[in-house]
Amino acid sequence: MVNPVTHNLKKYFRGEINYTTCPGCGNGIVAQAILWAIDDSGIDFDNYAFVSGIGCSGWIPSPAFNTDVLHVTHGRAIAFATGLKLAAPNMKIIVTAGDGDTSAIGGNHFIHACRRNIDLTMICVNNQIYGMTGGQIAPTTPYLSKTTTTPYGSVERPFDLSKIAIAAGATFVARWTTFQARQLRKTIAKAILHPGFSFVEIISQCPVQYGKVLKKRNDAVAMLMDYKERSINLKKARELQKSELKDKIIVGEFVEERNVPELTQEINRLREEALQKCQR
């Protein structure tokens, strides 16, 4: 007699777990990190809502997570989430988006959410490529990469998404790779509780499309080992020269700023002030 074992996270799924991602995709690690963090938070799953856009990462919560899920247009997840948060400020709202969603088509919404410091948790799955549409170059793909739309090698410099978030004023910014699954879980748990806009960038393997670019096609393990090799903690990185950091992935929690006014609270203040004026 075998005792059936139910995974601790199964309770968060809408029916059977049926992901459509490719073998070796980083989405599974990210989904687990998010759900473990939610499990750690002690907040009822019904109080969470997920908003996602178009791209592979959009499928992390949609339709799998068994709570309110809004799956919207390409690049606009943050903008939808902003409206939702303003209308339902007590909800914990998590946005999952890819690097293209975040920094190409949705770049404007991204920087403005950072600036507004609205209490959303943004999980950006950065696989450095357009996966779903067939391996085209993304704003995060390294210089000289040969992709399906850069057969001669890319001539554009990539974005550093965490740096953009910091520059735009996000009050919680962190980056890990999918190799650091445990650190990721802890960071997401912190991000969820952070009272303001939190940006968690996850460098995640796409063995099918980006693996091809790296000549590690369909080899998720090789990509993860590569992340392990190249990751360097923020504190260590501070002691190194710029040349020594070439090709390194700096990981860790870059920014955690409290006491910055948060948008829904600010709007609440405006309501109270307007009401007082009316009563006078």
Binding site: V51, D68, L70, V72, T73, R76, A79, F80, A81, T82, G83, L84, K85, L86, A87, A88, M91, N108, H109, H112, I267
Partner: peptide
């Protein structure tokens, strides 16, 4: 809310509607 563009404006409106507004 004054949004960053009209795309965000309608997205905010639809998101808010799902939030009950």
């Amino acid at each position: 809310i004054q949004t960053e563009d009209e795309i965000a404006a309608i997205a905010n409106v639809l998101g808010a509607s799902w939030g009950g507004a």
